[in-house]
Design a binder for these strands. Structure first.
Lengths: 339, 339
DNA sequence: GTGAAAGCGCTAACAT
DNA sequence: ATGTTAGCGCTTTCAC
């Protein structure tokens, strides 16, 4: 069934001006700096706005002022509690400062990032937030001749394009390794989402492996084919233990993988941590309630959002970058009974 | 090099035209309908674009054509696998058709929805996607005198503002109830995230309760104080069973709550489903791997995204709404060993 | 404090 | 097929 609608004309600033009996530029001034308009006219203008249901046209405003209130944010995926928590915090902080987030997700595809950067830059954004340091050559050249403030987030330890807010995934893997070594585990395994998809999981693995091996231990690696999948994790763990029965501890690239490991242990009747110690990454809500409670690493999801917003706004306000334009927020190991 | 520009200054269409030795409007035409430009000039224009690194200014284009490629999407939260999966699918489909998503999250606050609608509408969006049917009076009046296509998603069964894509949460609660009754459970409980936050969980509860009670059963309700929290869920379950030792089955408002219930059962040594049957909602990946595997309801997360995109694009293309502008996508009960 | 006028960078009639 | 011209709805000098 086809339905026709009147294409209702939007109210413009000029119409508001006419009704309020002032000039358009006075209305414009009122919208931007209300206290520079005399109370009498201010009131007339406001009532005209209310009466007509006026909504300013952001595009026209952005074009005229040749600056926008848009901040582009590009993440690998929003279906992931890591990035979505950061996004939510970032959104809250930036929106309250009058900015609008334009979110793009690459679905872990580098060429999509390029396309997204293109698309975001065409909005003339006030700022751009990227995930990690890995960008294609073309992406870099797109950003090279632009003076848009850029923050790379969720990683740390390599030179960034502009500002950086994150933490070292390598150090985070090391932290778990040191804990495992402290508990006396030497024969370990690392079960991970695919490094192709998630380079940062790869960094955590390296940090873990280097530390374990430096202490004379051993690390067997298993990668899932794609994203965290508890069923595949269970299968992988079964094979892993069949081939390496001496393994005492498993470090997982995230909590979901660790959950899959714990379920499989339960199914096999392997007591945790006596037969197998298990650690996750993410410290998601449920880690405190697993049986036994899961040792995990708490990444600064929300803090990242907060600081990205702070740096961006400092730059936008006065063109400066705070001293700490390169910020390592660190992680915390939450030790529970699974190790 | 023809001329020097300060790097902060963006290249305009006019500069491309100049370098390609054509008029701006030819460049404009080339950008929008390349095959209506002669191959010779097309090539010159393209090489000028490449050489200058030209990126069109979306705001200027939008203003001039008085239409935008923006689709506003407002969800309660993006930190929730339900909505984020829908968003990801929606984004993929709409972006490939040239649209840009403007995502806002209300954090379950009705007054924030109003503000977000305002903010989105100021972009003159081509379409608007809202979650559910509950909108404040002011929100409604904002939408009343606009001809923007609107889709309300993730719910079904009440009259919508325009188009609707979702499923009945009431029916989904009923489905679980019928399954439980079929298994012989009559003394049941419903543990839920807070209805204030999540009205749809409330609908599922109603559907569940009505069906159980119609069969002579009983339902005890427990609400969490906020979002799904496995620790709080454990506590609640403990109290619930202490006060109602006869309860045989628990229906949870989502899989995370059900996971909390299963952990608590494991901790207490209550065999599932013999002492207590447990069902979730969401059919998240991990439900297949819990011990025992969890019975859950599969909502059409991705399908919602797909169909919202489809309806929106049909309307935008030819102004029509397909036959099924009001779409119940239904749910599927996935029965596993936890019931 | 207020208004007139000149754009912002593009699109869309229309003319050629 | 290409160019000319007149806006889109707002912001921003700059007079008054």
């Amino acid at each position: 069934m086809a339905r026709r609608r009147r294409s209702s004309q939007r109210v413009t600033m000029g119409e508001v001006a006419q009704l309020a009996d002032v000039s358009p530029s006075t209305v414009s001034l009122y919208m931007r700096r209300p206290d520079e308009v005399s109370p009498r006219r201010a009131e007339k203008i406001q009532s005209a706005i209310d009466r007509l249901g006026y909504l300013p046209n952001t595009m026209a405003g952005g074009l005229a002022s040749s600056r926008s209130n848009v901040i582009g944010v590009i993440v690998p995926t929003i279906t992931n509690s890591f990035f979505s928590a950061t996004l939510e915090t970032l959104e809250r902080h930036l929106r309250s400062a009058g900015y609008q987030l334009l979110i793009g997700n690459t679905e872990f595809d580098e060429s999509r990032e390029e396309e997204l950067i293109r698309s975001v830059m065409s909005w003339n954004p006030a700022g751009l937030v990227l995930t990690g340091f890995l960008h294609s050559r073309k992406s870099l050249s797109l950003l090279a001749n632009s003076d848009t403030p850029i923050v790379e987030m969720w990683d740390y330890g390599r030179p960034g394009l502009d500002m950086v807010v994150g933490f070292s995934h390598h150090a985070s893997g090391r932290l778990v390794a040191e804990h495992m070594l402290g508990r006396g585990y030497r024969r370990t395994a690392f079960i991970s989402t695919n490094f192709q998809r998630d380079v940062r999981a790869g960094d955590r693995y390296l940090g873990f492996r280097e530390t374990i091996e430096a202490a004379g231990g051993r690390v067997v690696l298993r990668q899932l084919s794609g994203r965290s999948d508890t069923a595949e994790t269970g299968r992988l763990l079964g094979e892993l233990i069949a081939e390496n029965p001496g393994i005492e501890a498993i470090c997982c690239s995230n909590d979901m993988v660790a959950l899959g490991v714990m379920f499989e242990c339960q199914r096999q009747g392997w007591p945790i941590p006596d037969r197998l110690a298990v650690a996750g990454f993410g410290n998601q809500d449920f880690t405190a309630s697993t049986v036994p409670p899961m040792t995990s690493v708490e990444p600064p999801r929300q803090e990242i959002g907060r600081h990205v917003a702070r740096l961006l706004m400092a730059r936008l306000r006065d063109g400066t970058t705070p001293q700490e334009g390169n910020l390592d927020l660190g992680v915390e190991l939450v030790v529970r009974e699974s190790t």
